[in-house]
C-alpha cells in the first residue's frame, strides 16, 4: 500500500502524517480524529463535510487529502479561534438554528467563509450562499436568521 507524506495544519495545529493517493480529505480528517467533519453522501451533494481549505470553503469529500498538503484547513472545532466563528456559533445556539446538528458543522463553516468575504449580506444572498449545504430538519429559516443576525451585527459595528 503506497502512502504519501502529507504536512498540513488543521485548526492551526501542524499535522505530519501520510495519506493514500485516492483518500478524500473527509476520510483523512475523520481518520485523524476530526470527526466534527461529517460524512453525508461522499459525492459533494450535501455539504455536511464542508471545511475551509486555504481560505475557501470546500466539500472535503470531493477533495483529495493530498490536495491539502502544505495547506491550512479549518473545521468547526477551530471556529472558536475567530471572532466571527464564535459569533456564528452563539447565534446558531440562540436562534435555535440547530436541530439534529448534523449539517451544523458544515453550515457554520460555509457561513463563516461567506461572511468573511461579504460581511453584510441580505437574507436572499445568505440563502444562496448556503445552498450547497443541505439541512433536512430546520427548513433553513432559523439558520438564515442566525447568519443574518451576525450580518446585522457586522453592519452595526462597521
Amino acid at each position: 500500500m503506497e502512502e504519501y507524506k502529507i504536512d498540513l495544519t488543521v485548526n492551526g495545529e501542524k499535522i505530519s502524517t501520510t495519506a493514500k493517493a485516492e483518500e478524500s480529505l473527509l476520510k483523512f480528517l475523520r481518520r485523524n480524529g476530526f470527526t466534527e467533519v461529517k460524512c453525508g453522501c461522499e459525492k459533494g451533494e450535501c455539504g455536511t463535510c464542508t471545511v475551509i481549505l486555504n481560505e475557501k470553503a470546500v466539500k472535503s469529500c470531493i477533495t483529495l487529502a493530498l490536495q491539502a498538503n502544505h495547506k491550512e484547513v479549518w473545521t468547526v472545532k477551530g471556529m472558536e479561534k475567530f471572532e466571527l466563528g464564535r459569533k456564528l456559533q452563539k447565534s446558531f445556539v440562540n436562534y435555535g438554528a440547530i436541530q439534529c446538528g448534523f449539517c451544523t458543522p458544515g453550515m457554520i463553516i460555509t457561513a463563516k467563509n461567506y461572511l468573511d468575504q461579504n460581511p453584510i449580506p441580505n437574507r436572499e444572498e445568505i440563502k444562496k450562499a448556503i445552498s450547497g449545504n443541505l439541512c433536512r430538519c430546520t427548513g433553513y429559516k432559523k439558520i438564515v436568521d442566525a447568519i443574518y443576525a451576525v450580518a446585522v451585527e457586522n453592519q452595526r459595528s462597521k
Binding site: E42, K43, G44, K59, C61, I62, T63, L64, Q67
Partner: peptide
C-alpha cells in the same frame, strides 16, 4: 483539479488503477 467528479468516480469504481496527477 477541482476533483468534484474524480473522487465519486473512484468510489463508484469507474476510475481504476490510475496515476492521479494533481
Amino acid at each position: 483539479a477541482g476533483c468534484s467528479n474524480v473522487l465519486p468516480n473512484i468510489r463508484d469504481k469507474e476510475i481504476k488503477a490510475k496515476v492521479l496527477i494533481d
